[in-house]
């Protein structure tokens, strides 16, 4: 049993919190995902990673996927709600990043209220993924 300086406690706190925050990406799992088997096998695919404001839980992740999956040319979608991050693989012969962004940000018709709802999702940044 030996004495330690009191400053040891705040230093330990800072180190542990820093390591936890920095290493959290190692534990990342998609909050929702979609695969289109007819496209994921064989076709040459491109990928885009988008930060989407509005993808904040499993429910909104599923909704995000439902908005894109039937639009044609989408091979797979992975939504990571914790970081508002979405990774989309697509067939460049059938769609493109501009079209995907348009679909994400388009207003949708809410049947319960009989109204068009705008601004559910907003793409704040995006980058193309290297094959």
């Amino acid at each position: 049993m030996f004495k330690i300086p009191k400053i040891f406690i705040p230093i330990l706190l800072v180190v542990i919190i820093f390591v936890a925050v920095k290493s959290s990406s190692l534990l990342a799992l998609p909050s929702a995902e979609y695969d289109n088997p007819s496209l994921t096998s064989g076709a040459k695919l491109s990928g885009i990673e988008m930060i989407v404001k509005g993808v904040k839980c499993r429910g909104t992740s599923n909704f995000f996927i439902s908005r894109l999956k039937d639009s044609g040319g989408i091979a797979s979608i992975k939504a990571f709600a914790g970081e508002n991050r979405c990774v989309i693989k697509y067939d460049p012969q059938q769609t493109n990043p501009e079209r995907i962004k348009e679909l994400v940000e388009a207003p949708y018709f809410q049947a319960e209220t009989n109204q068009w709802i705008e601004g559910i999702f907003a793409v704040t940044s995006s980058k193309m993924l290297q094959e």
Partner: peptide, 26 residues
């Protein structure tokens, strides 16, 4: 299910693991 519930994410889990380490140490 292999997924995070609702709005939870890897950051919550990492913080919890960090917390356990912290409790054992301090």
């Amino acid at each position: 299910t292999g997924n995070y519930t609702c709005a939870l994410s890897e950051a919550n889990l990492a913080m919890f693991i960090g917390l356990i380490a912290l409790v054992v140490l301090s």
